[in-house]
Write a protein that binds this DNA or RNA. Structure first.
Lengths: 108, 108
DNA sequence: CGAATATTACGACGGACATCGTAATAGAAG
DNA sequence: CTTCTATTACGATGTCCGTCGTAATATTCG
């Protein structure tokens, strides 16, 4: 009964595009994803995304269930990282186009 | 004062990625977008996406405001088409990766 | 063991939104 | 002009979801 070292996460082949899009559509979650392209791994408390830690945990759960991040169990900490390789194989071009999208020019 | 031949639509440079993702995240809207990659142009009534016409119109309005489709005024009809070229310039790789995404394998 | 810390579960609250039916508007057709 | 058709505006409704505070759980440390 070796304890799992990873939190349960879906097989990317079973994940719908809509699910991934929905996960990426939230500003906070997109900021988390972008952050994870820079730091490679981070815990909820370490991320500074402007919302309470319980909210960050909530979003991280959604990102995990949507197949975007993988969360490792390390004592009381749960460092997460992007599932970059797998995502690029399942949805070629999606992640990079979203993360690398040019910022919007101020409207009106 | 020549009447505008196009319904008002945003400059794509002012559109945020989150907005586009949110627009694409809805199943009905994604079906509309996919349909518009096949027929090039269509009205709300012509589209058969499984919801009432008033709902289709609602979704089409969101797609327009999000910068995804362009709607032309043709009598009482309002045929819409994908802003493919502009979208590919604004968000390289996004549209094609979403539209061309492989379907999800039945989970569990 | 007891204290401190990281994370999540839970409950609540407010706002956003998908859906529909109906009415209003506008052009086309007779 | 009258009728028909296409589209949208509007109002209503139920659901989903982002946010937070607090409590519970688990692990590390002294």
């Amino acid at each position: 009964m070796d304890a799992p070292t990873l939190l349960p996460q879906p097989d990317l082949d079973t994940v719908h595009v809509e699910t991934v899009l929905r996960a990426l559509a939230d500003p906070v979650r997109l900021r988390i994803v972008r952050r994870l392209t820079e730091v490679e791994e981070s815990t909820c408390t370490a991320l500074d995304v402007g919302v309470k830690v319980s909210t960050v945990s909530h979003h991280m759960g959604i990102l995990r269930e949507s197949g975007l991040v993988s969360t490792r169990i390390d004592g009381t900490a749960r460092p997460s990282r992007l599932r970059g390789e797998e995502l690029r194989r399942r949805f070629p071009g999606l992640l990079d186009s979203v993360v690398g999208a040019a910022p919007a020019r101020p409207a009106t």
